[in-house]
Design a protein around this nucleic acid. Structure first.
Lengths: 233, 233
DNA sequence: CGCTAATTTGAGTGACTTCAAGCACAGTGG
DNA sequence: CCACTGTGCTTGAAGTCACTCAAATTAGCG
């Protein structure tokens, strides 16, 4: 075993019904487990950077990352988030391109690195795995296409309401209906594709309309139906 | 042979260095060739519709289609185009979801339909094919992510210039520098994500600035560097 | 050390500007 | 003749700028 520290074993991820790895044979899983290198990343750390070469992919064990592209004059556009059992960076290895996004930690994370040739081997040797991976890519592609349509046709107000609902789906609410992901106003703006000030103004409108409650970065969702209506979802 | 008419054989597509089919064994290709059903589609015809179930995928032999999603109040958002050797609809079979876009012909097309189980068989039996298909999906995903960033951050003017350049890459220019795809102003607007009037105004601005020339739907590209500058490409 | 002081960072507000959408209408050409 | 193109005008949504305030970090110093 390479990782002598108490780093996670792949079995722990499988136990969570891992979307792509659960189809591996015990032997294949062993190989991955042996080859992988785990690391702890603190908030703000960059796992990989847009435009750089990456030779493997990453499997998130815990924590949350944002994946973003840097547009003109350095403005971030957040493409998606990754949390436990998500894999990131696999796109670049498959198409042997440079990373097209930057992955930055927004909640302290434990992440395993798996060399790229493992991925190639698995795709060739395990059709079920290949299928799952392909389905994952297709799902992401479908979501991306949806978002293109939204961003092109909906107003900032509609999009912000929609993003709040999507974040709720992906990160859930706690027992007090508080969104279980903490983002700055600027980060919210970088998802929605707008200015920070606009997000601030719209959030307080939503608050006034009793759709949400705000205390710092905690967002409490009060009226899901109301948000859905605004998002025309 | 099922198709008694003079419909294209798969070999003709292979001859064009088909992006995913070229990795098939002769036997596999034979199977596809036998199972496929070809059809001629006229401009305006719909190959498949958003929200409908499709049980196979389509391989474009000739012609051009637009793939679009229908947003709120029926406004089209064109996601991509398909031309010869492109395959469409494969996403829905892989993830066994309903079609998430509508495919409509904009230039008379010959299109082959291949049943979905063929795709499953090929992915499982031919790792090289699986790999190619995955790379194709990844490429599309990368482009989608780029477009999200653009549409979220760039002005309509910048995006229109960029789209003209992208169309030039994809459909080439003829000997007179005329773009080899003919779109209505509305269709252009539905790619860029703006109003038809805005496209009209901006196109005539571009014309005034000697970047392009217009004669009906024919767009002649005069100054590529200039367009690149506007698109901040 | 511990306790301010100083600096940074993020949230929030108001005034102003501008881009682009929407509407109405006039050509025009296949 | 109808769908498409083109133009002028108006309005509104959202971006930008300039600033305040609060909280959180870091530095400074007795």
């Amino acid at each position: 075993m390479k990782n002598i520290q108490n780093f996670p074993s792949c079995e722990e991820c499988i136990a969570k019904d891992h979307p792509v790895f659960k189809d591996l044979t015990p032997e294949q899983l062993d190989n991955v487990n042996y080859d992988k290198a785990c690391n702890i990343y603190k908030r703000g750390m960059v796992v990989f950077q847009e435009g750089h070469r990456i030779n493997g992919f990453y499997c998130v064990f815990s924590g949350i990352l944002k994946l973003y592209k840097t547009g003109i004059d350095g403005k971030e556009q957040i493409i998606r988030f990754a949390k436990d059992t998500d894999i990131i960076g696999y796109r670049s290895i498959l198409s042997s391109e440079l990373a097209c996004t930057t992955a930055k930690v927004i909640e302290d994370a434990t992440i395993c690195y798996i060399p790229g040739d493992q991925l190639h081997t698995l795709v060739t040797e395990n059709p079920a795995f290949a299928m799952k991976l392909m389905q994952l890519t297709c799902k992401e592609l479908g979501e991306a296409n949806n978002y293109i349509t939204d961003i092109a046709q909906k107003t900032v107000r509609e999009r912000l309401a929609e993003i709040l609902l999507l974040l709720k789906e992906r990160f859930d609410l706690d027992e007090n209906q508080v969104l279980q992901i903490s983002l700055t106003r600027e980060e919210l703006a970088n998802i929605v594709g707008t200015a920070t000030e606009s997000v601030i103004r719209l959030l307080s409108e939503f608050k006034q309309d009793r759709l949400i409650e705000l205390q710092g970065r905690k967002i409490k969702i009060l009226n899901i139906a109301g948000l859905k209506k605004i998002a025309s979802f």
